[in-house]
Each structure stands twice: as structure tokens, then as C-alpha cells.
Design a protein around this nucleic acid. Structure first.
Lengths: 127, 127
DNA sequence: TCAACATATGAATAATTGTTCATATGTTCA
DNA sequence: TGAACATATGAACAATTATTCATATGTTGA
């Protein structure tokens, strides 16, 4: 028998689906959102962002700080630059990178807060 | 000649590295953070989270709403459940999922704000 | 107890992606 | 001009992962 993808069939609560579907962001926004979070989904990039939130740094020093090859850092910086999360300026041979987005700090630290609360064992919120 | 990973060598601005390295979150936090963002880095999961932020829903309806197979939805819900971003309750045959984290809403909407500003063409901030 | 239903899950596959290696580009200084 | 240096980038490889397929688990009602 051919398989029937059940998402093409009926629903159990049609009203719920109708209501929720009206509040969903459109498909393009969702894809952009996921792409943005992909940039935060790698530990090397997260470390780069934390470093650049504090100060501008050149590629060479980032490589040393994070113990990652110059090439790898450079590849990751390009991704962050394309997304306009970091910017750069050249001073002679050296290229300095720095944070270019005031949201990054907020998002990263909010997520850190989440993790801290997450890890608290056996505690209920007191309200 | 053997390759020399340049991140094992000297630095250009030692003071900068010393200063920044003191403010960096520890390695475990960074890895947890990246793992958390991995969950937001897929459009199916983002859509699930947006839906469950509005109301609880059963797997079958989520599958219909998102036009994704039941199996795929179930797999993704397990990841979100393991991370405690969603919770579930069973009522007979039906399992209802709902958001289990008040940070998710904030993070997702903050990122949406970021994208909106990002896309504004040729406008400078007015301060 | 058994059929129908809703959900969960293991294995396999295809696609994505982070790093490495080799090399190119761009800059300085002698 | 050319050597040394800092950075960028293309190709290849390895690892991760989202989905599909097949099937298992758990629940209801007859």
C-alpha cells in the first residue's frame, strides 16, 4: 500500500488550527529566523561573538585566544559579517573585527540566563 | 614543510587577549549555549515553538498545521522536550504539547525584531 | 481481546556544515 | 621590486542532522 502522509489528511481540532495559523509568522520570516539562529549554533562563533562584544580584535589574536586556526576563524568571521553581526576595519595589514549589532548581546545573555535557571536542580519557582 | 597552526604561536596584542579571556564564559557554558541555539536553528522547530507559544496542540494537529509528517513532528518534539522547551500531557490517545519556557517567547520575538530592522533599506538610526 | 487510532522511535539516507589544506590577495618596509 | 606578514578563500573531507520508512508502544471502545 502506498504511504499516506498524514499531514495531508484531516485534523482533530480544526478551530485550533485555524486560530493558530493566523498568528504564525510567514514562511520567509521563519526561514530568516532559523538562519539567524544557525549562526549562534556553533561554539566557535559564539566565542567569537562574546569576545567581540567586549572589544574589537584582529583575526590573528582571535585565532590565538580561541585556539582555532586562522583559516577557521576567517571563515566564521565571513559568515558573521555577511549577517551583519560583526563589522571590520583594516589598519595596514591588520583587520580588526567588532560587534555590529546591539541585539546580539541581549540574546546571548538572555540565553545564558535561561541555562542558569535550567540547571538549578529540584527548585520550583516561588512566584 | 609541516603546517604550523598559527593559533599556537604568538599574539599581536597580548594585553587585549589577557583582558578578554577573563570575561569569556567557560567552555561548558559556551557549548550549552550553542546546543540551545541549535534547537532554534531549524525552521520546523521554530514553527512548532511559535505555534505552542499560542496554545497547546496535539501532534496530529501540529503535523497538519505545519504540513510535516507525523514522524518528523514527533522527532522534533522529542528534541524540544529533552531541552525542556516544551512539555506534554496525555489525554487518552492524544498527547498535547505546550510551551514550557518563558524565555523562548522573548528570544524568538527579539530575533524577529532584529530581522525587521536589518531589512530596512537605506535607513540610519536617528538616535 | 482485538481492531482502530495517536504517538514514538530505530535505522537509513540525503543534505548541510565546520575545519583543514593549499594558495590567493592585500599591505608594509627595506 | 620583493620578501615577510595578516587575512581571505576555494575545495575536500568528516561529522552532524532533518526527514522518511517501517514498525513499535500505548489507548479506546466494541
Amino acid at each position: 500500500m502506498t504511504q499516506i502522509p498524514n499531514h495531508e489528511n484531516t485534523t482533530i481540532h480544526p478551530e485550533v488550527i485555524k486560530r493558530v495559523s493566523q498568528t504564525m509568522p510567514d514562511e520567509e520570516q521563519i526561514l530568516d529566523l532559523a538562519d539567524l539562529f544557525k549562526l549562534f549554533a556553533d561554539s566557535t562563533r559564539v566565542r567569537i561573538l562574546f569576545a567581540l562584544m567586549k572589544t574589537e580584535m584582529c583575526v590573528y589574536d582571535l585565532s590565538a585566544l580561541l585556539q582555532v586556526s586562522q583559516s577557521a576563524v576567517s571563515h566564521q568571521l565571513r559568515l558573521l559579517r555577511n549577517a551583519k553581526l560583526v563589522k571590520n576595519r583594516r589598519e595596514g595589514k591588520i583587520v580588526y573585527y567588532s560587534s555590529d549589532d546591539y541585539h546580539v548581546d541581549t540574546v546571548l545573555n538572555l540565553a545564558l540566563e535561561h541555562l542558569k535557571e535550567e540547571k538549578r536542580p529540584y527548585t520550583e519557582d516561588l512566584e
